[in-house]
Design a protein around this nucleic acid. Structure first.
Lengths: 237, 237
DNA sequence: TTACCAGCATGATTTATATCAAGGCGTACT
DNA sequence: AGTACGCCTTGATATAAATCATGCTGGTAA
């Protein structure tokens, strides 16, 4: 892992109010700040590996992290994208189980590590922290179930379009001409892994939706040429 | 819903020690017992519907309940089977969201309903209750993610065999000749909905695994003729 | 420059599963 | 008893996506 950066301060952290730490008082924040370790990380690095003993949680300050699940025969899928302001690894830590997934850095990211003991302290000293983790877990569960249901009922094409809309909601902006744009944070291979598909299929899908005038791809740049048609096809979920 | 049965007593409930209520003291158990409503229910009935406002949680004393997710175009999938000793509906209640799924009775079941106010009381008066819900949510999340990953990486056939092994773990027994047996609690249609497949495909799958000597189906009775081969094919997960 | 390699695209073919259509079987109602 | 309906099976065909094979392109290293 890259070297540790000590210039960040939890009290001023712009993402603190979206995390489990939003209810901490000044003293607790100070302890947290002393204990946390901030790391700037690059694509290809990992926060933890599936099966490792859980040693703490990771707060994503910026960037994009993917949770990857490996099965017994070496296949894997990306089951979740986690961005700014989210905490990963809490489930394993709090249930005293090994990490159920690996967490891999997808874009250059800044991540704070909070070791087991400081998380325990916070849980013990502030009952709100546990409530926040409960809310986080319930929300993750609901998202996971809805992703799961989508994978059971929809084709790869529809899930691909859905993913493109999710990416637009997270990363979309208007270019100088007012065109809706996303700069893809992930490779074709990773899109495939998010959808349980093969990269070749993603290439073909890109070709079709382009030919149909829905989206226009140029490398990692995507122009949403006809968002209404996309929304309509996926059923405005 | 069917009429209410008042003969059950939470203090003696055989499933209490697997639920969120295992840490309650005598007084709290008494309140819970006064507030709970026990119902005997039949297949086809529902505990709640996706989109309804959450009014409480349901503790399954016996039987089998399925959580079904409907998408915008009327498709649906069974995303979870819940059996004896599990609580359903807590996510919606605790996050103050509408139910994210419908809960349908799959086999004759006995279910206790605990309304919002009594759940709030227990949460307020016993910090262990919140911890238990957190543990439950984390476990459900981990199972959901693993089901999701399986749906992304495995064929319907492999997921079907996996389901048959899960059903064996839950419901399997040895018949008078020592043969491993399961009496299926669900219809072909429901197996299909659990796998995101069509019932015709399940029929054909049953035919193939039968011809290959893996399992033998006779209506709802399943004989596990060659469990090792089944385990081997799904990769001993 | 050249060589090399990862990421990506495309073509040909195969495979798993869906879809459409028909019929069988048991059970519950009249 | 008969009949009607839900559940299940089977067959023929269609389709989505995988697989196998090939080649392009753009960046990086020698």
């Amino acid at each position: 892992m890259s070297q540790c950066d000590t210039t960040h301060d939890c009290s001023n952290c712009p993402t603190r109010h979206t995390t489990e730490w939003r209810d901490l008082d000044k003293n607790q924040l100070a302890s947290l700040n002393l204990a946390k370790r901030t790391h700037a990380m690059e694509p290809g690095e990992t926060l933890f590996l599936q099966g490792d003993e859980a040693d703490g949680v990771y707060c994503i300050q910026s960037g994009l992290v993917g949770l990857r699940y490996f099965d017994e025969d070496g296949n894997s899928a990306l089951i979740r994208l986690c961005g700014t302001g989210t905490t990963v690894g809490y489930g394993a830590l709090l249930s005293k189980q090994p990490y159920a997934t690996s967490a891999e850095i997808l874009t250059p990211s800044v991540v704070c590590f909070l070791k087991r003991s400081i998380v325990s302290d916070m849980l013990a000293n502030n009952p709100k922290v546990g409530e926040r983790f409960l809310q986080h877990s319930i929300r993750d569960l609901s998202e996971s179930e809805s992703d799961y249901a989508r994978s059971l009922t929809k084709t790869v094409r529809l899930r691909f379009l859905h993913l493109m809309m999710v990416l637009y909601e997270r990363l979309g902006y208007l270019d100088e001409n007012g065109n809706p744009i996303v700069e893809l944070p992930i490779m074709r291979r990773e899109i495939a892994d998010l959808l349980g598909a093969q990269p070749e299929s993603i290439s073909r899908l890109i070709r079709s939706v382009q030919d149909e005038g829905l989206l226009k791809f140029d490398g990692k740049m995507v122009l949403y040429s006809d968002m209404d048609k996309v929304q309509h096809e996926i059923g405005t979920s």
